[in-house]
Design a protein around this nucleic acid. Structure first.
Lengths: 212, 212
DNA sequence: TCTGAATTGACAAAAAATTAACATAAGCGT
DNA sequence: ACGCTTATGTTAATTTTTTGTCAATTCAGA
């Protein structure tokens, strides 16, 4: 299917395009040129055209791009036209925060289960979902055809749990634990290393200081 | 001071080096070669050497790198040798989750205040810090010499609050709101767009499907 | 102290990503 | 219908990033 390998750099920019197109659409704007988008988004028009053409010709010469159409197409490319069933593993603060984000649901990311090791939080209800003990996780994932597991547990147990998840047939892991997961190639892992991000900010703070 | 411009690509990799070096150090390992690190971290030895040499010659020919020394040096580069004073703006689930992460404190990121618009949560105590009303934010930031503000509020108010923060003298913003902040160049912004990350995962799930 | 093995730092080459340029196609006004 | 303008898609050039190579330096052992 996929002819050429598509770089993650391009993929990373798609959600941002989607966001701006959504805003334009909500403002009732129907068409947009790469140059106009360029001005708004602060990226070169050339990059926008190049990125979009990686996936196909969505525009029309002399006209530009139809906002609604392009929005939908990018959504499809990102797989937002289908539903994803997720579980949260780790009902701590972060896990709870994610479940409560209603925006994910609107995009088709449906939280179906929450699991935690701690018996004290099991049984508790978060955003309408009952927290279950870890032991029930494997069966739950299989029975509910869970696509994605969100890992919000400490790094000490993350590697072990990730292996379990992979064995249960989860296709993707959204990993907030501060470790690199080494899993079979067909399992997709998307890392969110918050402390890395904060350190990067810290670096950039120091570097502007030095410029003086 | 800064001779050559250092690319963000290199900076992004530093926290990961730091993490692995920390692990080696904790295991009592004193020296490591770029080749050994390469094997562990799954990056080329060449890249490791290149990255490190961007900041100086930390190694020794024929010997390799001293784990503890390199760890400390990378820490300094990332600004972890100094303390940072932060405030959280937005005492929702995510804001609370971040405050409760003790790992940040260990790295010198000290949460000093939490602010929220909602009168119902004001006065509440989170991780030993009292949530204050937004009105008190500007004075608090000035009086406590806050470096970094963590933005965990909805995007509707994020742009406006970010402007305020910039005006109060905050030097960096760790932005979890789903908007791009357009601020004066001396203010560093580090974005954590969670939904972008999830969409990327979604894309990669679809793309492995197509490969078959 | 000398010799061989190991390993960096620097430079060169290759690959990837970004930007620029332009021919081509569509729209728009007359 | 015709020509002018606009703006894409594509190819080429440029820049950046990554990888490969190797001389120079240090360590370790005899």
């Amino acid at each position: 299917m996929e002819e050429k390998e598509i770089s993650q750099a391009v993929v990373s920019r798609l959600p941002r395009y989607l966001r701006y197109l959504g805003e334009l659409r909500d403002e009732g704007i129907e068409r947009v040129s790469s140059q106009e988008l360029s001005d708004i988004m602060q990226v070169t028009a050339s990059q926008i055209r190049q990125d979009l053409n990686t996936f196909g010709g969505f525009g029309q010469q002399g006209y530009g791009y139809n906002v609604g159409y392009l929005y939908d197409e990018i959504g499809k490319i990102l797989g937002l036209n289908r539903e994803h069933r997720l579980v949260i593993v780790g009902a701590g603060n972060l896990g709870q925060a994610l479940v409560n984000y209603t925006n994910f649901e609107r995009r088709g990311f449906l939280f179906r289960g929450i699991f935690d090791h701690d018996p004290k939080v099991c049984g508790k209800e978060i955003h309408g979902i009952t927290v279950r003990p870890m032991e029930e996780m494997p069966d739950f994932i299989r029975e509910n055809q869970i696509d994605i597991a969100v890992l919000t547990i400490p790094k000490t147990s993350a590697v072990e749990v990730a292996k379990q998840l992979a064995a249960c047939g989860v296709r993707g892991i959204w990993n907030f634990a501060h470790v690199d997961l080494r899993l079979p190639g067909h399992i997709q892992v998307e890392n969110v290393h918050l402390s890395d991000s904060l350190m990067k900010l810290s670096y950039n703070l120091s570097s502007v200081e030095d410029e003086s």
